[in-house]
């Protein structure tokens, strides 16, 4: 498995090349910002008809990660659905697919700003959750430590010889870890942005996703 093992808040975890976080000791997989049903919401709100295949693509990647890791606990770290109506109107085939993925696992939906209410899918629905040393919530809260969050869709770019490579990235320092967005139709916020610069300390690191996850000092 292509991953970057590291220690955060005294906990040994692994950043997967797909953008998922794997906690071997707890057999827990965490993914953030799936934005399922995004093309439906865009069509409903703006009349733009994007290719309606992003939910199946996201689920296919998630299924592959679950297969590979054999996770027993899954945390979806908020913004799992592009909005509550997108969650309610997900096509039958995709609802069944989610149900199949959930079978035999503890599944936790953390609320995000896009999906801040109850949804009809099985599993637990929580504001946040603490497992072991780590607290999981959608948006990083001021002054917290040992916190895993999402929301910002961070990406980072590195300059190689004559070529700039930009990828979704995990960002972390001593106190917080921010996960990249996992959904297919998600853009990214550059690690250079002020908001990420304020959230993360000067020694923060970035782990670029991709075939071989690569760790660099967070580009600012």
């Amino acid at each position: 498995m292509n991953c970057h093992p590291f220690t955060f808040a005294g906990t040994a975890i692994k950043a997967l090349g797909s953008g998922a976080l794997w906690w071997p000791e707890n057999e827990m997989l965490c993914v953030s910002d799936l934005h399922l049903g995004k093309s439906e919401r865009v069509a409903r709100r703006s009349g733009q008809s994007l290719p309606p295949y992003e939910t199946r693509d996201t689920l296919a990647r998630l299924a592959a990660d679950l297969d590979q890791t054999g996770a027993r606990i899954v945390i979806c770290l908020g913004d799992s659905f592009d909005d509550l109506m997108a969650a309610a109107t997900l096509p039958e085939a995709e609802r069944l697919w989610i149900a199949r993925l959930q079978a035999g696992r503890r599944w936790i939906w953390i609320e995000g700003n896009h999906d801040p209410g109850p949804i009809e899918f099985g599993g637990e629905h929580l504001q946040d959750i603490t497992l072991g040393a780590l607290t999981f919530r959608h948006i990083a809260a001021p002054g917290c430590t040992a916190e895993v969050s999402g929301h910002y869709h961070p990406k980072a770019a590195i300059q190689t010889r004559g070529r700039r490579i930009s990828r979704p990235a995990f960002l972390y320092d001593d106190d917080r870890l921010i996960l990249p967005a996992y959904g297919t139709y998600t853009g990214g916020l550059r690690s250079h942005s002020d908001v990420l610069g304020h959230l993360l300390g000067p020694k923060a690191l970035a782990i670029l996703t991709g075939p071989v996850p690569t760790c660099v000092p967070m580009p600012r």
């Binding site: 439906e40 069509a43 409903r44 733009q48 309606p52």
Partner: peptide, 9 residues
Amino acid sequence: LRAYDQWQR
């Protein structure tokens, strides 16, 4: 995939 019957432009 006919997805946008309800929301077509």
